[in-house]
Amino acid sequence: MKTSCPDPGLTSSPRTRTLRWLRRLAVAAVAAAILPISAAGAADASDAPAGTPPGSIAAAPYYYFDSYNRPDPVDIMRRTGIRWFTLAFVVAPDATTCAPQWDGGGSFDPGSAQSRAIAAIRAAGGDVIPSLGGGGVYKLGQACDSTEALAAAYQQVVDAYELKAVDLDIEGAEFADPAARQRNVAALKLLQDRNPGLKVYLTVPVFDTGFSGNGIALVDDAKAVNLDVTAWAGMAFWFGKGAIDMGDASIRAMNGMQTVVRDVYGMSDREAYRHVGLSSLAGVNEDPGEVITLQDFRQVLGYAHRHQIGRLTFWNVNRDRQCQADGSDLPDTCSGVQQSPYEYTGMVARYRQPAA
């Protein structure tokens, strides 16, 4: 199954087009400064279907450690009811070193800012899904030269935090590289075999009609090694179509993904919906005219509950706030739409995927 359309994974994203050199200066100045972390418990958001579990792992927005704006995640939990965060990103330090680190250079040591944040989230009743890869330059899927080496690198992350789940965000050159795609799914299969019960999410760029050719190839690769993908999340932005209805476009993308997953894995329609999901974006994208509004999120939330999709996330809680009127906000730290703080996160928190 192929497509001749340009692949969205080769389009630069808000993550890669940010002025990274300036961000490095800002991060260096606040290396230990994730905002003071409280031990307060989180409120519960409760308009989910009756009988569904609180704090669904399927609802896990991205939190980016290497951001200009690093709000207190426990405060976000308290304000919104969110229980899970997808933490961005675990990367390689350079093009050839097969050793995991947090984007921006953070370690997995208990004293690091990232590890302290994870401990605080868990103390407040939440948990985390580290995201492997992302939109940066150096990816473990390319730096590690064998399946075994890549699986060992991913195992270091699982062991460091005793994880229940990981997310592979595969895009850009890694997504376009057949060898890297195949190495990743084979390594994730080894990781699951060695860690029974580990959930694996795969996040990929998509068209507004569903998977690209590279995305379809990745689904085929995953099926070939019998990787149990908990959910395929489509990055439903950067469609290149300007001012379109992004709620409708997101739903078209998920419907197209569902058809591919159903056919490749031989699933029923209902089962296939439970194995697809959405990775969206809060507010205004750099793609001219593309805006994902709060109403788009409400539309997608209704779709998620109707079809019981397997994942609902977005980029990212760091930008889930209204921009300053004077234009003083640093890149990718506000949504560009009129909103209350963490309003997108609050809607994601309302999603509960019922038990199978």
Rank of each mutant, 00 (worst) to 15 (best):
K139V: 06
A179D: 01
R183I: 12
A179R: 13
L168Q: 12
D103P: 00
T230W: 11
A224Y: 09
T203L: 08
G136Y: 02
Q101D: 04
A99M: 03
D127I: 14
V185N: 03
P196L: 09
S146T: 14
Q142K: 12
D221G: 11
A119N: 09
D159W: 10
G105D: 12
D228W: 06
D103M: 00
Q142C: 07
A120E: 06
L202H: 08
A224S: 01
L132H: 06
W232L: 02
L227Q: 15
Q156S: 08
F237K: 10
P205H: 08
Y138L: 13
V204G: 00
Y201G: 13
G141M: 02
K164H: 13
A187N: 09
V204A: 07
P130D: 05
G105L: 14
A187T: 02
E174F: 04
A236L: 14
I244R: 10
Y138Q: 11
I244T: 06
V225H: 12
G126D: 09
I129H: 02
L150C: 15
F207Q: 14
A231Q: 10
G134P: 00
A180F: 15
Q114N: 04
A217V: 13
I244Q: 15
V206I: 06
V166Y: 03
T147S: 05
N184F: 11
N214W: 10
L202C: 13
A186F: 09
V229L: 08
Q192S: 14
G126H: 04
T203Q: 01
A99R: 14
L188I: 06
N226R: 10
L191Q: 14
G172A: 09
C144W: 15
D159L: 03
P196R: 10
V185R: 15
A160H: 12
A165E: 06
F108V: 09
D221F: 05
Q142M: 03
G172S: 05
A123D: 06
A236G: 14
Y201N: 07
S131C: 01
P196F: 10
P196Y: 08
L140R: 01
L163H: 04
D159Q: 00
V204P: 02
P100E: 15
A180R: 05
W238P: 07
T209E: 10
G242K: 15
D167Q: 00
D159C: 01
L191V: 08
L140F: 11
R116V: 04
A151P: 02
K164W: 11
I118N: 12
G126A: 11
A217E: 03
G242D: 10
G126V: 04
E171I: 07
G240W: 11
Q192L: 02
A119G: 09
P178M: 15
A217P: 13
T230M: 01
D228I: 15
A149V: 06
G134E: 00
R181P: 08
A233C: 04
D193A: 03
P196M: 11
R181L: 12
L140E: 12
I118S: 13
R122D: 15
K139Q: 01
Y138V: 09
Q156D: 13
V200W: 08
L218A: 04
Y161P: 01
S115K: 14
C144V: 07
L218C: 07
V219G: 02
A113M: 11
S112F: 04
S107P: 04
V225Y: 05
G133D: 00
G172V: 05
E174Y: 06
D177G: 15
G133V: 00
V225E: 02
F207G: 12
G134I: 00
S212I: 09
K241Q: 08
F239H: 15
E148Y: 09
W232T: 00
C98H: 12
